[in-house]
């Protein structure tokens, strides 16, 4: 464990909690892409199956359970509890255009042709594109509430910190996870446009983010 990875995990947790609390307290999921949240729940489900097969640490196990519970709870809020506030017409990204290539690639490019390993690879590839429906929805509606932009900021920051973690681990322990690193770079690049708008618009106190 190193500071970059710990900070990254904390950013990830903060992002997920920000979103959950925003929906829970405002009793509305307006402007939130339910499709992205379903994809994130799928990412955690396919990645954390090793909860039942290998114990790494208390921290690892606890965080996996927390991420799974919050991810499914958020999907529940969007599609069941507050479904009347869900903008399904704005959440129109065709997720099959993500799932099919990601599934295909996870069969082609993986470390081992074993079920758990292919599912882990699938979750890594899927996570790098899972935010696209949400970013697409924001470009479609042309705006995002500031709380949603804070959610996206921490979510983007988490994987950027993981990139620093991989640089650190490469130099200190020779660790190099090619699939995770390449996917992590792609994932972080998708946030660059948002980061620019976030720093130039939201942090200047203009509250809501309106796209030019």
């Amino acid at each position: 464990m190193n500071i970059f990875r710990l900070l990254g995990d904390m950013c990830h947790l903060v992002a997920i909690i920000i979103l959950f609390l925003k929906i829970w307290r405002s009793k509305s999921c307006a402007g939130i892409s339910g499709k992205s949240q379903v994809l994130f729940a799928l990412v955690f489900t396919t990645r954390y199956l090793d909860l039942f097969t290998s114990f790494i640490s208390v921290y690892n196990t606890v965080m996996k359970v927390v991420f799974l519970v919050l991810a499914y709870a958020t999907v529940y809020l969007i599609y069941l509890r507050f479904r009347s506030t869900y903008n399904s017409e704005s959440d129109s990204f065709r997720v099959e255009f993500l799932l099919v290539p990601v599934a295909g690639l996870s069969f082609l490019e993986n470390y081992a042709f074993a079920p758990l390993e292919i599912l882990w690879t699938f979750s890594i590839y899927l996570e790098s594109v899972a935010i696209l429906p949400q970013l697409f929805m924001i470009t479609k509606t042309g705006e995002a509430e500031s709380i949603t932009t804070h959610y996206l900021f921490f979510l983007g920051l988490y994987r950027a910190l993981y990139l620093a973690n991989w640089v650190w681990r490469y130099h200190t322990e020779g660790f190099f996870d090619q699939i995770a690193v390449v996917s992590g770079v792609v994932q972080t690049i998708f946030y660059c446009d948002f980061f620019y708008l976030y720093f130039t618009k939201v942090l200047r106190g203009s509250g809501k983010m309106t796209l030019p």
Partner: peptide, 10 residues
């Protein structure tokens, strides 16, 4: 170590 199949990261 490319290709390890034990993943210790979240």
């Amino acid at each position: 170590m490319i290709g390890q199949t034990s993943h210790d990261e979240l």
